[in-house]
């Protein structure tokens, strides 16, 4: 019997139908088995515009369950308008618990940031990815980039990075710095700043990536080797905030926002990660990600 669903007002749990959820789940498993490799998937339309986090939503909605606690951030902030909208949507269709507290969350969906606070093995971080193909800048056609990945033929990529160095004295890539995963695939970490890139390496938590418009899923499992592309003589480095300080906390070993004041000349800096900033202000105990770049900065401070 076909149910009459005309103009109904209820939707499936977690919005996506079970058939599609299963497809996404199967592909997420394959993504985990082949770290850094982009798995094509159906990417059904969502009531959120393409480019606004549909890929992240597909992943979140395919994995979320009744006992999950969701945190949703955009540019490091829980309060960003799109994060609010996406959080509302997931909450509306799953009735899941939501939080701003990084430590409480079991699933963190993010756009363009990794939390400053260290993540545990009980947490999954889901990235919204605009362009999953790190080679797209050097090769515009999909069938060719796929071949390049298949054959580990990354000469073009290395050449482009080297050319940037010759021209500008540095690999100029800012956010979305390309990385080598498990020594096999070059992967786009999504447009996270370089500051966050080292935190993908040897992590405790699972990182899942969803690119909705481009219809690709990929993953970085815990304890996986993730290395930013660098040369013997031109090393990867994170953003330099050594000369500035957070206006509210005085802290500066974190990714910072730069805010021009109304006079258009003076600038103030604030810690970008809203929950981390809150915890610093409240003087709560908070364990930050550690990596060799952060360690170096901290050592220099002492």
């Amino acid at each position: 019997m076909i149910e009459n669903k005309k103009f109904n007002t209820s939707y499936n749990y977690a919005f996506i139908d079970e058939t599609t959820k299963k497809e996404i789940r199967r592909k997420l498993l394959k993504a985990v088995c082949i770290p850094g490799y982009q798995v094509p998937y159906s990417s059904p339309e969502m009531p959120i515009a393409r480019g606004w986090g549909t890929g992240g939503l597909h992943v979140t909605l395919a994995i979320i369950g009744q006992s999950d606690v969701l945190k949703m951030i955009d540019q490091g902030s829980d309060a960003s308008v799109n994060a609010c909208n996406l959080r509302d949507f997931v909450h509306m269709t799953t009735d899941c618990a939501t939080t701003f507290d990084t430590r409480e969350a079991t699933i963190i969906q993010t756009r363009h940031r990794i939390t400053e606070e260290k993540l545990s093995d009980k947490q999954i971080m889901v990235f919204q990815v605009p362009q999953p193909e790190p080679l797209r800048r050097v090769e515009r056609y999909e069938y060719k980039t796929r071949q390049m990945h298949a054959e580990s033929d990354y000469a073009k990529m290395w050449l482009t990075l080297y050319e940037a160095y010759v021209k500008w004295g540095d690999v100029m890539q800012g956010a979305g710095y390309p990385v080598m995963v498990n020594g096999r695939y070059i992967m786009s970490p999504s447009p996270i700043p370089r500051w966050d890139v080292p935190n993908l390496n040897n992590s405790e938590c699972l990182y899942l990536f969803g690119a909705g418009r481009e219809k690709r899923l990929y993953a970085v499992p815990p304890h996986t080797k993730v290395e930013p592309l660098e040369f013997e003589d031109v090393k990867f480095h994170v953003e330099d905030f050594s000369n500035v300080k957070c206006e509210s906390t005085g802290y500066n070993v974190a990714y910072m926002d730069e805010m021009y004041q109304d006079d258009g000349v003076t600038k103030k800096f604030y810690v970008n990660d809203s929950n981390f900033l809150d915890k610093l202000i409240e003087k709560e105990e908070v364990v930050q990600h550690s990596n060799k770049y952060i360690k170096k900065i901290k050592d220099a401070l002492q």
Partner: peptide
């Protein structure tokens, strides 16, 4: 959408 994190990195 805000892109200031990305932009800061480029800056």
């Amino acid at each position: 959408l805000p892109h200031y994190v990305t932009f800061q990195s480029g800056l």
